[in-house]
Write a protein that binds this DNA or RNA. Structure first.
Lengths: 217, 217
DNA sequence: ATGCGCATCCAACCGTAGGTGGAGCTTGTG
DNA sequence: CACAAGCTCCACCTACGGTTGGATGCGCAT
């Protein structure tokens, strides 16, 4: 089964280069070429490609907005982003838009072909420097999920109450949930506030989110 | 400059296979082989390798804990994790521990060599299926950062108050911050509660976190 | 220009949340 | 067994937070 690819880049030479390279492969077929994001969205709607190879910097509509629209219209299409510039917020924006891959223009021909095949089968592939940033960002976020000592000092019941506070429940509702009196809930709350150095339930919610006890990370 | 690699795997055949493959390369040197995590930590402390190739499942101490200790001791060493099993929480745990790469055992020889070189130069590389999961997770987290309509309906002042609530300030403190009376703050709060369907400031904090208005994502 | 909508501002009222001090009950550990 | 620690509950008080109702001033359209 051939992989049907749409190529979008505003520079004619680059566009031709990509299309030419892809065409040499038996399992890849170029079904369209676009000079900007708007045309890419059009062509994607018409041809329903398996992979949309999108340059980020393009006139009229950038590759990220194009990816967003293409994916909204045809979720089975995979977006593979390409950019000259590494150090971009583009990375995050592109991934948030639903891109499956992110390459730099210094990628070699085999790397590009590999990337197309990887995203076509539903996996994802990023340039190593991009992977580095993503991993670093991810590690930063997860690190605080290793629950700090403070939380260790909470009793099981106090932790339970804390998570219910972080779910937005009032004291009365928490009492109902735990089948105890509201007074009891207040006791737990007072002692957990003291242990964690909190003042009110709003700060408790913040604490819960910051330490991964709520909002699933 | 040769890349100095430490190999850790409890299966002798696998270990020998990796070591043998790596040794065939001019730019790579195997400086140690460990049969479990504890020995890996020992050998890493002694040899200070550039890359530690760590199996995840190992007796006595698993690869993740080993990575954590090795990196704590020698931050310049890069951890490259290998596992037979794909669908694991291992991925997140490994990245949180500071790993720079994550491969599956079905990786080809060129892929392994490429991975070693990538992490040695400070970048990161993940198996495509792992990348997929990470990208999906990342996109999930970021998606809600595209501020929803509800927030659009808030006035500038109300948004301001909301973020201050989400920072844990009391009404009095917010009033001081905005140089208005506490009554004013309360009225802003009341109308933003109505617009967002919230009941109290705790729920407001939750809303802010869930929609990326607080806790920097 | 006059009226309408909207954001901002304010005061007074009342309920819930938070603070204090204390007591009975179970469970596990020295 | 005695003791510590956690869970439960009560009474009471303060005050912060949330509600209601209304005032001012700005922009906009009729």
């Amino acid at each position: 089964m051939t992989i049907r690819v749409l190529v979008a880049d505003d520079q004619a030479i680059v566009r031709a280069g990509f299309a030419g390279l892809l065409s040499t492969q038996d399992d890849i077929e170029v079904v369209g070429q676009a000079v900007d994001g708007a045309e890419a969205v059009d062509l994607a709607a018409r041809h329903r490609p398996d992979v949309a190879l999108l340059d980020i910097r393009m006139p009229r509509m950038d590759g990220i907005e194009a990816a967003r629209r293409i994916l909204a219209d045809a979720p089975r299409t995979r977006a593979l982003m390409i950019t000259t510039f590494d150090v971009d917020d583009y990375v995050y924006a592109a991934l948030a838009a639903g891109a499956s891959g992110f390459l730099l223009k210094d990628a070699t021909a085999p790397e590009l072909l590999e990337a197309v095949r990887v995203v076509a089968r539903g996996d994802a592939l990023l340039a190593p420097s991009v992977t580095k940033r993503l991993v670093a960002e991810f590690a930063r976020q997860r690190r605080r999920l290793v629950v700090p000592r403070q939380v260790e000092e909470l009793t099981a019941r106090e932790r339970e109450v804390l998570t219910l506070i972080a779910a937005g429940l009032s004291n009365g509702e928490i009492a109902g949930e735990l089948v105890v009196s509201e007074s009891t809930v207040k006791s737990h709350i007072n002692r957990l506030f003291a242990k964690l150095g909190l003042r009110d339930r709003a700060q408790a919610v913040i604490f819960a989110y910051e330490h991964g006890l709520a909002g699933n990370g």
